[in-house]
Lab assay of single mutants.
Amino acid sequence: CHSECLGNCSQPDDPTKCVACRNFYLDGRCVETCPPPYYHFQDWRCVNFSFCQDLHHKCKNSRRQGCHQYVIHNNKCIPECPSGYTMNSSNLLCTPCLGPCPKVCHLLEGEKTIDSVTSAQELRGCTVINGSLIINIRGGNNLAAELEANLGLIEEISGYLKIRRSYALVSLSFFRKLRLIRGETLEIGNYSFYALDNQNLRQLWDWSKHNLTITQGKLFFHYNPKLCLSEIHKMEEVSGTKGRQERNDIALKTNGDQASCENELLKFSYIRTSFDKILLRWEPYWPPDFRDLLGFMLFYKEAPYQNVTEFDGQDACGSNSWTVVDIDPPLRSNDPKSQNHPGWLMRGLKPWTQYAIFVKTLVTFSDERRTYGAKSDIIYVQTDATNPSVPLDPISVSNSSSQIILKWKPPSDPNGNITHYLVFWERQAEDSELFELDYCLKGLKLPSRTWSPPFESEDSQKHNQSEYEDSAGECCSCPKTDSQILKELEESSFRKTFEDYLHNVVFVPRKT
């Protein structure tokens, strides 16, 4: 048989008469490798580009789960590009990614509803959504962080984005990388972005840091009482949809009607710091009717980097990364020049730590249904340095008659930039024990000054392991946590139920 035959053949030295091919099969003959313009397919066939392209389009058009959109890589027609490569849609070739590779997620039936953290986790790592997304989240724990972890990498949506009755959302900033909504599939009414009845939605994105392009379709905003109209108009300008909307697409009466839409800028007039305090004062603000001013709200939190936005980490279910302080308005003076500047002394802060701070007014709604208010920009203030805590785990070892090696770990709280350490030492008198000992005694162990690591005695271990207080009263049991108490109650309830079950099964009433 021919060298490319495997198993047997019907005619000697003829690659077209093989029972099976050793390498690849091409047009009725066995070959060692697939010549151009053919590609290896499933490690035994040679196919042309049209064959591989037909497989790709067949799966793409069917949208069946589990099928493969075949691509070409290293002269092979394979189910998908290997790690580190992405497909070129024009020629199906796998090309190296520039940075992290995109991950295209194809949605069944063309859309997916995100109504819980669990459903959001199914899209973790996706960068391109081939379909439409509907966000409908009523509640949950730590929602802002969970949504950002699972949806934060999405850069492109081919269909539309719909935010509907998501009472738990305060902001859409968890879509931190969303840059493009194509609108290839539109919501009824030709809408590519749809926001309806979101009672706590206050911000779409921080438009000073976020760009969003909507290729096709219109915007729809109705019944978002805490979303200011200025935020919607800003989205029109940034996304390129200005002029597409009709009169009733953006409701003037049901958007922002319960919001404090600040239209003035508060400026800080005085800032002073110490290692654990920050004193702030800002310019006074009074609405047209000074009785509408209820006070100020001061927001602050630790910020290692200057990239904080107002609604980071917030949701309507209680999660809030900001510390909020309510401040009463100052006494009002008739003389504008003698107006008191409101302020606040922030206490209990960490030394040498940068804080993000902003302040906003708290006002009631005027009778004319106009909203007044003022808010400052987010500023960054760093507390002063102070003395560091003591170095940890000092170790001293003498390696000769004239040297001592000293080692330690950095302090747990540096409280500033540590530039150097101060080492103090003092000579001590020799131990009298060394002169009084009889060095001729056998088995004498000389006193040693070398360091030995501390260890816990058996008594201390027994005390720590004991669940009861000892007789001397030195140790006591740790208080039980809520989960331990709940577990004990469940076990007790189970024992009672099981005992009742045994009584009912074992003891049967005697027939009379």
Rank of each mutant, 00 (worst) to 15 (best):
S319G: 12
I404N: 01
G159P: 00
V359T: 03
H106S: 07
A259I: 15
A144H: 10
I395A: 13
Y300H: 12
Q354E: 09
M297R: 02
G217M: 01
V381E: 09
R244S: 04
T215C: 11
N387R: 08
D249N: 10
P411W: 01
I181T: 01
K301C: 02
S239L: 11
W207V: 10
F175H: 01
K253C: 06
A168V: 04
C261R: 06
G295A: 15
L133W: 00
A303S: 10
N200G: 02
S398M: 01
F221C: 14
G159V: 02
C105G: 01
A251E: 05
I214R: 05
G373D: 08
L293F: 08
I378M: 03
N340H: 08
I188Q: 06
Q121K: 13
L252E: 04
L153C: 11
S402V: 15
S398L: 02
W344V: 04
P288F: 13
S171H: 15
S239H: 03
K301P: 00
F221A: 10
Y160L: 04
E246C: 03
K375A: 09
I214N: 03
N130A: 10
N320A: 08
Q245L: 06
N334Q: 13
V359W: 00
I114E: 00
R202V: 13
F365H: 02
N200W: 02
G348T: 15
I250N: 14
P304L: 15
M297T: 02
W207F: 13
Y191I: 14
E156P: 00
A356L: 01
F358G: 15
E237Q: 13
K209H: 15
E264A: 03
L362Y: 12
A251S: 08
I214A: 07
E302D: 10
D206I: 04
P342L: 10
L212C: 02
C261S: 05
G313D: 03
D289L: 03
R332M: 05
L147C: 03
E146F: 07
F175P: 00
C105T: 00
S192Y: 01
K103T: 06
K350P: 02
A316P: 15
W352Y: 02
E146A: 13
L331H: 10
D206V: 08
H222L: 08
P351E: 03
L392S: 13
L133M: 09
S333V: 06
T215P: 07
I405T: 03
G295W: 15
Y305A: 14
S158L: 14
N150W: 13
N340M: 03
E187G: 13
R369C: 12
R138W: 08
H233T: 14
T383P: 00
S173A: 10
L147T: 03
R291A: 04
P394K: 11
I357G: 01
A149T: 10
P388I: 01
N334L: 04
K301I: 13
T254I: 14
Y380M: 05
L331K: 11
K112L: 15
N387T: 12
I114C: 06
L406M: 15
E246K: 14
L123S: 02
W207P: 04
P342M: 12
N190T: 07
V117Y: 02
K209I: 14
G125Q: 14
V363R: 03
R182F: 10
C228P: 05
Q306K: 09
A259C: 14
E368N: 01
Q199K: 15
D257E: 07
E187A: 05
W286F: 05
Q314E: 15
E262A: 03
E310Y: 05
L153F: 06
Y160P: 02
L107C: 14
L293T: 02
N334H: 15
T361H: 14
I134V: 10
R164C: 03
R138D: 03
R370K: 10
K209N: 06
S389C: 05
A144G: 11
S269P: 01
V324C: 08
Y194H: 10
I134A: 08
L212V: 12
S208Q: 10
T361S: 09
K162H: 14
L229A: 12
K360D: 02
E155D: 08
G217S: 03
D335W: 13
P388S: 02
L265E: 06
K337W: 06
C126T: 01
Y167L: 02
T273I: 07
F275Y: 06
S119G: 14
Q314P: 02
C261Q: 03
G110N: 06
V325W: 15
S269D: 03
Q306H: 04
G131P: 00
D335T: 14
Q216S: 11
G217R: 03
I154G: 00
T323L: 13
L349Y: 00
S173H: 12
G217F: 01
F220D: 10
I154T: 07
K218Q: 04
N198R: 00
R179T: 13
D393G: 01
P284M: 14
I357N: 00
P342D: 10
L147S: 02
E156A: 06
Q121F: 09
S274E: 11
T213Q: 13
N211G: 10
L186H: 15
T241G: 14
L169V: 11
P391H: 01
N320I: 04
L172A: 06
R182H: 10
S400T: 07
L331G: 15
T353W: 04
V390M: 12
S398N: 15
Q382V: 09
S402Y: 15
D328P: 15
Q216P: 03
L252C: 13
I137S: 01
W344L: 09
R247Q: 06
G373W: 09
L293N: 06
L147D: 00
I378L: 13
C126K: 01
A303W: 05
W322C: 01
R272K: 00
Q199W: 07
L219F: 06
L227I: 14
L293D: 03
V397K: 15
M346F: 06
K277P: 00
G110K: 06
D249Q: 03
F193L: 10
K407G: 06
W205T: 01
S402L: 12
P351H: 06
Y223A: 04
T273H: 08
M235E: 00
K301Q: 05
R347T: 12
S400G: 07
E246S: 05
Q216K: 00
G140D: 09
S119E: 05
H341M: 07
L349S: 01
C317E: 15
K301A: 12
V359L: 08
M346C: 05
D312Y: 05
K209S: 08
G243V: 00
K234T: 14
P351D: 02
L172M: 13
T127P: 03
S366H: 15
T371N: 09
S132D: 06
Y372K: 12
I157A: 01
D292I: 13
R165A: 14
I378Y: 05
Y380E: 01
D335V: 06
Y160V: 03
I157E: 00
N307S: 08
K253D: 03
N255R: 05
E283V: 13
N190G: 08
Y300A: 05
F175V: 06
G295S: 05
D312N: 07
N136I: 02
T273Q: 08
T323H: 15
Q354V: 09
D289S: 05
T215R: 14
L212Q: 06
L178M: 13
I114T: 01
N263S: 08
I395G: 06
W207G: 03
L212F: 11
L108W: 15
L252Q: 10
N200P: 01
P225H: 12
L266E: 00
L227P: 00
Q339N: 14
L161R: 00
I214C: 10
E283F: 08
R124F: 03
M235V: 04
N150K: 15
R332S: 09
K253T: 13
N211E: 12
L204S: 05
I378T: 11
N224R: 00
R244T: 08
H106W: 09
E368Y: 10
E187S: 11
Q306E: 11
D276M: 03
I250L: 09
T371F: 03
R164V: 02
N399F: 15
N320H: 10
